[in-house]
Simulated assay, not measured.
Amino acid sequence: MILWGRASSVNVQKVLWALDEIGLPYEHKIVGGKYGGLDDPKFAALTPMRRVPVLQDGDVALCESHAILRYLARDQMTPVGDMWMEFGSTTLQPPFIGLFWQRVRMTPAQQDAQVLASQLDALNAGLAILNTSLSDERAFIAGDDFTMADIALGSLFYRITDLYPDLLADHPHVAKWHKSIAARAGYRQWIATSYDELKVT
């Protein structure tokens, strides 16, 4: 099994964390971003989209991080877990990306205060939904067991809380869940890492 992608990509981080949680052996080929390689014929043959991550498992080649998570957990995925993974894609990740690009990938002069405020409002709205869902004191996103849904959503939270340290104060159930998943080895190794190489100075 080969994972293609740079570890500074949050979508690649999801898959690295998942592979470690499952305990599967794999080779990591670093491509994308400043590392290049997306036009390499070996990589281009795996995906028409030419973006990371890509998981190569024998004759199977998959891109799109959540599709890869579903593939890795295909015997354990539940409809509820799948629903929350989609919530991450449609509700949490878009404003997170908007905020990250404004705060990290642009200079202060390029940043737009209105865009930042709008994206922060959207992220808070999503966090409020998640907080209400977690208010029944279940341990993880989809129930009492850690699943790929926790990885799909949880991979965003190191950067969210790094950029906005007080953001979870109004979402205590999310904060409690995040504290729990942040203690896991895969989170510490792959998610709680520097993103300095992505910063525009």
Rank of each mutant, 00 (worst) to 15 (best):
L3A: 05
G5N: 09
R6N: 08
R6E: 09
A7P: 05
S8W: 10
S8G: 07
S9L: 06
V10H: 06
V15S: 06
L16D: 09
L19C: 05
D20S: 09
E21S: 07
I22E: 07
G23Q: 07
G23D: 09
L24G: 05
H28D: 14
G32P: 02
K34V: 15
K34E: 15
G36R: 00
G36E: 06
L38H: 06
D40P: 05
P41K: 06
K42N: 13
F43P: 08
A44H: 12
A44M: 00
A45M: 03
A45L: 01
L46V: 07
L46M: 08
M49I: 05
R50I: 00
R51C: 04
V52Y: 06
Q56D: 01
Q56T: 07
E64V: 00
A67N: 06
I68A: 07
I68Q: 02
L69T: 14
L72F: 12
D75P: 11
Q76D: 13
M77N: 13
P79M: 07
P79S: 10
V80W: 04
V80N: 08
D82E: 13
D82S: 06
W84Y: 04
W84D: 00
M85L: 13
E86C: 10
G88M: 01
T90Y: 03
T91Y: 00
L92M: 08
P94Y: 10
R103L: 13
R103V: 12
V104Y: 01
R105Y: 05
M106T: 13
M106F: 11
M106D: 03
T107M: 12
P108V: 08
Q110N: 14
Q111C: 07
D112A: 10
V115N: 09
V115R: 11
V115M: 11
S118L: 13
L120G: 09
L120T: 14
L120E: 10
D121S: 14
D121R: 15
L123Q: 11
N124M: 10
A125G: 15
G126S: 05
L127D: 13
N131A: 08
S133R: 11
S135E: 03
S135M: 06
S135G: 01
S135H: 02
R138L: 01
A139W: 03
F140Q: 04
I141W: 04
A142P: 08
G143D: 04
I151C: 05
I151N: 04
L153S: 05
G154F: 02
S155F: 06
S155G: 11
R159A: 15
I160M: 06
T161W: 01
T161Y: 01
L163Q: 05
Y164A: 15
Y164E: 14
D166G: 11
L167N: 14
D170A: 15
D170V: 02
A175R: 11
W177E: 03
W177L: 11
H178Q: 14
H178E: 12
A182L: 02
A185D: 07
G186L: 05
G186R: 01
Y187P: 00
R188T: 00
Q189L: 15
Q189Y: 08
I191F: 05
T193E: 02
D196M: 02
E197V: 08
L198W: 01
V200H: 02
T201F: 11
